[in-house]
Design a protein around this nucleic acid. Structure first.
Length: 273
DNA sequence: AAAAATAGCAACCGCCATAGC
DNA sequence: TGCTATGGCGGTTGCTATTTT
């Protein structure tokens, strides 16, 4: 017996979401919280697959999402984390609050990959591209990608926050191909990242916002409903929020939600220690 | 100004892990 | 213990916008 499709393929809409669909999904989740995604389309009156609803919510509609390009610091973090975790985008995203795995994955494929290649670094192994040229001067990588879960749990904070090359390595990737300007820029960026922050970010299984359930407290729901204009009078607010980040609008209710969520997670964390 | 090429990103697909029965 | 349903993840696709020729 084959597996049932996650939804009835017939009559299921695909492609870009409309503002009306977004509205329905948001309203439903704010009212009911995140429950069974399979049931969401039906209950919310959407002709979408539950999977599609989940994706739309987590990647685009979630109120805590940051929009816009990754900052230089975030980008460097992604590089560092990728060197240690490989293509485990969800894990990486979990270390960057407000960013989604899809967003990071896209950014990696469109920006970072090219940047690394330009710098003479293999984006997969994080080692210099033309190894044969540097055999006499083997670059010691800071970490190995694709660690086993067991290894992953023993990830130690890196000595040098610069995931690219330590100053101790006389044979840096930048020695191979890239311009000095780029390496200087990267070093400057890396220096800005606090060691303790890196250590924290590398702690395995630290609950990230991405993994947190969105169970909206009733008060927050009320705030949400009172603060926001109705969709009927202005749909574009969502687009605005997406462009600038919801915090820019002073929607403190989301801070409350986040604080509440983090508090719960802290408690949970302490219990498991 | 138009066509072609390229870049960026949202969304989909298929597989895997796991909870629940 | 095995099976099924569901959620989640990573890879890939396809559309749109932008840049180049």
């Amino acid at each position: 017996m084959g597996r049932q499709p996650c939804c009835d393929k017939l009559g299921v809409k695909k492609g870009p979401w409309t503002a009306e669909e977004d509205k329905k999904l948001i309203n439903f989740i704010l009212t009911n919280g995140q429950c069974c995604w399979r049931a969401v389309p039906k209950l919310a009156g959407l002709r979408r697959c539950g999977k599609s609803c989940r994706l739309r919510w987590t990647n685009y509609l979630r109120p805590d999402l940051k929009r816009g390009l990754l900052t230089d610091a975030e980008e460097q973090l992604v590089i560092d984390l990728h060197a240690r975790l490989g293509n485990r985008w969800s894990k990486i995203a979990g270390r960057l609050p407000g960013r989604t795995d899809n967003e990071i994955k896209n950014h990696w494929n469109t920006h970072i990959k090219k940047k690394l290649i330009k710098m003479g670094i293999d984006p997969v192994t994080h080692e210099p591209l033309h190894k044969e040229e540097s055999n006499s001067c083997q670059v010691k990588t800071l970490s190995q990608p694709f660690q086993s879960p067991a290894e992953e749990n023993n990830v130690t904070p890196i000595q040098n926050t610069n995931g690219m090359a330590s100053s101790e390595n006389s044979c840096t990737p930048t020695d191979q191909n890239s311009s000095g300007d780029e390496s200087n820029l990267l070093s400057a960026i890396c220096d800005q990242i606090d060691d303790s922050l890196i250590s924290y970010l590398f702690e395995e299984d630290t609950p990230g916002l991405v993994d947190a359930p969105w169970d909206f407290p009733a008060a927050a729901k009320e705030n949400f409903n009172t603060v926001l204009p109705s969709w009927d009078e202005s749909c574009p607010w969502l687009l605005d929020c997406q462009d600038f980040g919801i915090q820019d609008f002073g929607f403190d209710c989301f801070n409350d939600i986040e604080m509440n969520m983090l508090t719960q997670l802290d408690v949970k964390d302490n219990q498991t220690i």
